[in-house]
Design a protein around this nucleic acid. Structure first.
Length: 293
DNA sequence: AAGCGAACCTGGCTGC
DNA sequence: TGCAGCCAGGTTCGCT
């Protein structure tokens, strides 16, 4: 479930269980996720405190006592479940007590305070790395990332400068984490629908010839912020049964206007067109061919 | 150099 | 019922 609002929701769910607490035990049930898990993973965490759990783009960034950064990415299907002793006896707990380890539970952090934090990832596109704290800004994972869409750096001026002369289509441009870090397929579709911009247009429509913002950029930037904020408020979007760390479901998926609505009537006032689906950058784009010019 | 498609992996759903 | 084919919230690699 992981675009920015989902990752941030996960972070908020994990914070009370992990932040300021020591790792008591780390179970690693396979050698790798997308990448090999860190050398001596358990030894480098156990006995240390997680000083803070932060987020950059779609990464969870844990600052570990002693200097390491625990960088975690959820890929497509990564999720965390938090179980505390108070919740013992719930369905997952029961299955566990029966002796079965749920499929795809790959890593379990046993935290001081009694929380068991389980990382589950069916497709294993997610990963965990330990990187020296000194490399927090310079490490390849973070170096090339673009601006945080909810921070002060995403401005029409910035976006216009980056879009100037770009031939890639708007969809690919907004998905590019080197430009804006945290948008994914859903929120790009939704932001473009709400801004009435056609995803197949060249990104250069966001800038004047000299790289200055135009009316499109001025509408798009606030729309990106608004949709992410709204999704955040709703606890993110839940597709295919995924849950927040506390077991709750996000509900922003009910607010999608375009994503996943192929063949349905466009919801814009007066518009009688049907939402279309096409593939761009290998991903489904949902859009209204009439509203989005 | 930018900009594509393919690859990574598993599972759910659709249609024959 | 079985099986092939398509699809899925992301990122990276390698080829034009």
């Amino acid at each position: 479930m992981p675009e920015l609002p989902e990752v941030e929701t996960v972070r908020l769910g994990l914070q009370p269980a992990m932040e300021g607490r020591k790792f008591l035990r780390v179970e690693q049930r396979r050698p790798d996720l997308r990448f090999p898990l860190p050398e001596r993973f358990s030894e480098r965490l156990v006995g240390r405190r997680l000083l803070s759990l932060e987020r950059r783009a779609k990464y969870l960034v844990g600052v570990v006592e002693g200097g390491d950064i625990l960088a975690m990415h959820l890929g497509m299907t990564g999720r965390f479940d938090v179980t505390t002793s108070k919740r013992a006896g719930q369905p997952g707990e029961f299955a566990h007590a029966q002796g079965g380890i749920p499929a795809h539970d790959h890593v379990v952090f046993h935290m001081e305070g009694g929380a068991r934090v389980t990382y589950n990832d069916v497709r294993r596109f997610g990963f965990m790395l330990l990187i020296p704290g000194a490399e927090r800004e310079t490490h390849a994972l973070f170096r090339g990332l673009g601006v945080e869409p909810l921070g002060p750096d995403l401005t029409p001026e910035y976006l216009a400068l980056r879009a100037r002369g770009k031939k890639a289509d708007l969809k690919a441009f907004l998905l590019d984490q080197r430009v804006i870090a945290g948008l994914g397929n859903i929120y790009v579709c939704e932001a473009l629908f709400r801004t009435r911009l056609n995803p197949t247009k060249s990104a250069s429509v966001l800038a004047t010839k000299t790289g200055l913002p135009n009316a499109h950029t001025q509408r798009l930037v606030p729309e990106i912020r608004a949709i992410l904020q709204a999704a955040l408020q709703a606890g993110g979007s839940t597709l295919r049964d995924y849950r927040q760390a506390d077991g709750a479901l996000g509900y922003f998926q009910h607010s999608f206007l375009a994503y996943g609505r192929e063949g349905e009537m466009c919801q814009a006032p007066q518009c009688k067109s049907l939402i279309k689906r096409r593939v761009q950058s290998g991903r489904s784009t949902f859009y209204c061919p009439t509203c989005q010019k």
